[in-house]
Design a binder for these strands. Structure first.
Lengths: 215, 215
DNA sequence: CGCCGAATCATACAATTGTTTGAAACAAGT
DNA sequence: ACTTGTTTCAAACAATTGTATGATTCGGCG
């Protein structure tokens, strides 16, 4: 319970995150993690119980750290929903495109997305669900009341999907984009595009609603 | 060298592809592959040498098979770009969300994209680039001329990103969606949403252009 | 039939890996 | 100084996994 304990536990968590991100859950061995963290092999089972729990905790910590880095925005009452949308999209993208020294957070997330493990459930509950609900609440302010809950969800998924693609598909996007333009693909630039494109769709939907066109 | 040999060898290749796609290289065991393929454990070493060779061969075969059903959609002259957009989005989603027994090609591909290798370049050139250019050409028809090439690319990335998310993020989306609604998340339903949402944004952009608003 | 090469099979082996164990080191309270 | 509870350590254990082996079966050919 001393600071020593927290030290090894933390070092273990941090190291585990990088190794899991690098090799995946199965290919990562507790032996390598412990060796890299300079702790005894038994430390994993002592502090976390088993490998899976270590993985879950390291994933949770990765997202916690990421969340600390770019805190969720909070607006004064009466802030225009358009501004909120811009802010929240920018926050998401900034978190995703963070500095490379914390890039393993993103790698871990990518692995979780593709092959969800037990860590996924906790991750969704503690971290993704709140963000998702935030986006939906902003969309409610933006869109006509006639929009159903199902549509709202799809739109929110679309926003998240676009942001994710700029992170996960970064390598491919780099191959499909001229270098001088790809260099501009920073969080602010991309966020501005996603937000304004979304708001254009909102305008388009309003237009249709006003004109009574349902398609 | 009889047809018997080719049979077991082929069944092994096919089964290996699905298992590798499902679990990844490391987590997939030759025992499970052989069991599912109903061949003896030693068959892998006999026919392919070792596990890695089997993996390489199954990936090559997956790419070969995928190349067979990538018929670029072709429309009669004068087809409305809106319809083209719907078709192409639906085609992408259908390929991504195909039945698991034929979708493992794509899963393997996604897995390779995650860890970009030399094969990634070929993959982009043969598979992603054509689709990407097709989407862009449709967007050119849809959008005002004032739209720049850079914007066009971002919009196309957005469409692809949304589709990809419904495939890669499927597990997490399932956790954020009521079951009775998630059950409706089939290719047609999702494609209709992505297309109509994109077209709404197109309308919104046109509206702004007409009104001279640049934001 | 008798033989031979290819293919399949059950089984064994060696290496790796997650986990456990029991002792030792350590810190802190009394 | 002694005790107590916590943490670290080296070693071992049991299960899994890739691979190798030797016997067996099968199909065709002289």
């Amino acid at each position: 319970m001393s600071s020593d304990v927290d030290d090894t536990k933390l070092r273990l968590l941090e190291t585990a995150g990088t190794v899991f991100a690098e090799k995946g859950y199965r290919a990562a061995t507790v032996r390598e993690i412990c060796q890299r963290a300079s702790v005894n092999l038994a430390a994993v089972n002592y502090h976390f119980g088993d490998k899976e729990r270590l993985y879950i905790e390291s994933v949770k910590r990765a997202h916690f750290c990421r969340g600390q880095h770019v805190p969720p925005p909070s607006w004064p009452d009466g802030t225009a929903p358009e501004d909120k949308l811009r802010d929240v999209i920018r926050a998401i993208l900034e978190r995703m495109l963070a500095a490379p020294d914390t890039a393993w957070h993103g790698q871990l997330m990518m692995r979780e997305l593709q092959q969800p493990t037990a860590a996924c459930a906790e991750l969704v509950r503690d971290y993704m669900r709140p963000h998702f609900d935030l986006i939906r609440s902003i969309l409610v302010e933006l869109l006509p009341d006639s929009i159903g809950d199902d549509k709202l969800r799809l739109i929110a998924f679309g926003i998240v999907g676009q942001c994710l693609h700029f992170r996960l598909g970064r390598a491919i996007i780099g191959m499909l984009t001229p270098p001088e333009e790809f260099r501009r693909y920073q969080a602010g630039y991309l966020a501005e595009h996603v937000a304004s494109w979304t708001l254009a769709a909102v305008d388009g939907l309003r237009l249709r609603a006003e004109q009574g066109v349902d398609r």
